[in-house]
Design a protein around this nucleic acid. Structure first.
Lengths: 337, 337
DNA sequence: CCTCGATGTTGAAACGTTTTAACGCCTGAG
DNA sequence: CTCAGGCGTTAAAACGTTTCAACATCGAGG
């Protein structure tokens, strides 16, 4: 490997001073065209690559933001990430993605590393409420898909209570009076909020609270949805719910699969509502009714908030989006031809 | 914001020299327990966070590797990334994910940035063959899911020709003689290889080459699969293929959805084989026959190769895994009860 | 002819770590 | 009493940039 060619090698090779090379790199307009060409040629010739560590050390700035994502395997988060990246790149920033995989140990390690890297800012969907506290260490942090309870930072979230309410109200309007909610663990704020919304929907409709059966899952992944489906089918027909509201689409897809495998039809035997409206929800063979969140916009807004963070008169803001019900075949009584 | 507390502030506060603080950070065993405690206390008290830029500038090392992923929204790649991350973290390295989103401009920018960051190594699934060349700049690079043609770097790949052969042979064995292959663009090596495998399967079975209709798509995403489905159904019944081999599962899922919407049954009217065996393939309402690749292992091996890259006697290696056909309902003639 | 401002370029001082060689101190052996 | 060697600590020199004040050079305006 080359003994690393530095800015002074370039300078020498081009017959100028290091300062000029630096100027070519950072303020090309300030240096005379002829000199600039000469320097660029030298850079090319020597294969110079700017050492970002040194730059950052001296300049203090870093051109990189990071998004610590809760579950990189969940398309919801990759969509949010896309929004983040679009906004970041418009501002000339690059995005590093870190996957905490719902593990608060990993999350902590990544946060520590990112602080040490002096990234310009951190977006995070934290594993739980406490871990959200930990983050403050000088680097601006914005919470994504979680609401900041204190006023110490910005957050961008979606109204999950409303989302749950929309979903279950829709089921009730379709005549369902025995409804299951599938989701968990309850340590996740989203799950709690969505359940609260579901309960509110019952109340609004004058239904008793036991119209809702809560099936708790260990995680929000497909396999857990399948497992919940088996539990559901195991119930005696008289008590079995006629509709299920899943805390996210992964669960709903698992549930859907489980139904089909066990010979039950959706929506005829069981109506299913998911949450997030990921692309695979629409692409499922029984297209899934789901609660859509503005995923890209969530990410985009979070990034924009983050980037205003060290402007002079910055006030921490809490943006909250409204979810929206998207009705598809998995809940419509009449099948499409 | 704090005026950033440095190692010398800590040193002063603990009544030792900076070198000792540095030792506490990097070789804790070399410093006397009493002193160490004092230093740690000072660090805690002042809220000191090591400046990684400075560390890296001086030490030359970086504790970070990066994976430039082709499409973060494709679960195949997030699974590969999981493997990478597991291997990385076993070696005490952190992983930064960058999403090129199949855009060679983005890819180039990220590569440049990563080189500037002096990351310890780069894994990449390049957008195309040429962009793979660009990468060499001093930082070790390992190709993931692509075979390096020259001997200048390691690569980890899966035998895509064999995969295509497996898929189409399976269809032929099930009696299909008019088969569509859906995939594209052809600039992607994988698509070409899988098609080559498909052709080989025809040849092996003594079928004419025009038994295979190639439907080229613009990308490997769900929407394109849907679109291809419409094209397929539009064909006159006499010429319409009875089976489709899709270059990846996203296409297959789109195709599947399109079939159902248009009132065609899978596999009765059209058998479908996907590629990658992502989790959603098994979770589809008509579970998808697919060609499985060892996703986590692909990532894991790539990371391990990368980490041996600057050991003294390193030889560039090209690892190639075998794919495996997973048969499910989307191609089995008899439906499960 | 002098001054002035504009335009380009530069020398040298940071930035916050790690690292190396040297240092003082102490202990135990000779 | 000396000396070797181990131990813990330190002063100072890097690492490769950016930045700032200062310095040439030159053409124009007085």
């Amino acid at each position: 490997m080359k003994p690393s060619v530095g800015i002074r090698d370039v300078a020498q090779h081009a017959g100028v001073s290091n300062a000029t090379v630096s100027n070519v790199l950072n303020r090309p307009d300030v240096v005379a065209p002829a000199t600039r060409q000469r320097v660029l040629a030298a850079i090319e010739e020597l294969g110079f690559v700017r050492n970002e560590s040194a730059r950052q050390l001296r300049a203090g700035r870093s051109r990189v933001i990071a998004y610590v994502v809760l579950d990189a395997a969940n398309p919801f988060f990759t969509d949010v990430a896309r929004g983040v990246e679009d906004a970041a790149r418009e501002a000339g920033m690059a995005l590093f993605l870190c996957n905490s995989a719902s593990d608060d140990g990993r999350e902590r390690e990544y946060l520590e590393l990112l602080h040490e890297q002096r990234v310009e800012g951190i977006l995070i969907t934290p594993v739980d409420a406490e871990s959200a506290q930990v983050a403050e260490r000088g680097t601006p942090v914005v919470l994504v898909d979680r609401e900041a309870t204190d006023g110490t930072r910005c957050s961008v979230a979606v109204d999950d209570v409303l989302g749950g309410e929309l979903a279950v109200t829709h089921l009730i309007e379709n005549g369902h009076t025995r409804i299951a909610m599938v989701g968990g663990p309850l340590s996740i704020q989203q799950v709690r909020d969505r359940r609260e919304g579901a309960v509110r929907a019952l109340t609004n409709a004058g239904l008793p609270l036991d119209a809702l059966t809560f099936l708790e899952t260990k995680s929000l992944q497909v396999a857990e949805g399948r497992e919940a489906g088996e539990r559901l089918v195991g119930l005696p027909a008289s008590r079995r719910p006629t509709a299920a509201f899943c805390a996210n689409d992964l669960l709903a897809l698992g549930l859907l699969q489980s139904m089909t495998q066990q010979g039950l039809r959706v929506p005829d035997d069981l109506a299913v509502v998911g949450y997030d409206d990921i692309e695979f929800a629409a692409a499922a063979a029984v297209p899934l009714t789901s609660v859509r969140q503005p995923r890209e916009q969530l990410g985009r807004t979070a990034a924009q908030l983050l980037l205003t963070e060290n402007e002079p008169g910055h006030e921490h803001r809490h943006v909250k989006f409204q979810p929206e019900l998207v009705v598809r075949a998995s809940t419509s009584v009449k099948r499409r031809p």
